[in-house]
Nucleic acid binder design. Structure first.
Lengths: 108, 108
DNA sequence: AAATAGTACCTTGCACAGCAAGGTACCGTG
DNA sequence: CACGGTACCTTGCTGTGCAAGGTACTATTT
């Protein structure tokens, strides 16, 4: 993937992606980070501040669970407020994506 | 449009959009700002630093032209390097968009 | 002629989020 | 018992969009 574009363009979409992942089932930060790294090149250092922010905003709750292979995992569970936020964000994303496509036009 | 999402998610895509606009014809910052404000909600304060950056990076060149209705306009013209950058950025954008869509899945 | 509104340029200070790099600690395997 | 993998986390940096403000030219209104 590209560099300067990707670095910037990812910003802000990550929360939506994490919410989408969590809407399919609880998960812990380290695993989310791996999934997101594959998909959109997110760095691990990004996930922990993001998850805390989301928790502070009431979008997710957490619970600990033993893993048997390393330290206990802190699982994140999406809240109703989080699910609602996801809905809004997806709508916004689609609108934005559409606007960009319109601008790009035949450059696509 | 949404708030916290939009604010962040715009980042980095603006350059690509401006390049795409310029690839259809020279234009000046104020008009670009208006177009981009309509399309993706970009503020005017964003365009001038962006255009300077792009000029410094050799993506665009400028020339002045009288307008008859206000101060002279500084037109921006996309360079070959700019056109190339646009191509790369569009490819990156499409890849990113696809990755996001995959993550969103049925949430769409 | 003076005030207003629109065009068009630009700058400054701020806030925020991703990143790289580093650090801690637990576990199983060699 | 050292090593590599898992899993947590923090710190400092950088870049970029934004809001707010500022300048100056032109045309319109009063």
């Amino acid at each position: 993937m590209g560099e300067s574009l990707q670095i910037q363009l990812k910003k802000g979409v990550l929360e939506m992606c994490v919410l989408a992942l969590l809407s399919k089932g609880d998960n812990y930060a380290y695993d989310i980070a791996i999934l997101m790294a594959e998909a959109v090149g997110m760095g691990e250092g990004t996930i922990y501040p993001l998850m805390r922010r989301m928790q502070n905003d009431g979008l997710v709750t957490t619970y600990l669970q033993e893993s048997g292979s390393g330290p206990p995992r802190k699982y994140y569970k999406i809240t109703k407020s989080g699910a609602l936020a996801l809905k809004t964000q997806v709508a916004d994303w689609l609108a934005f994506e559409g606007a960009v496509r319109k601008i790009l036009g035949d450059a696509t």
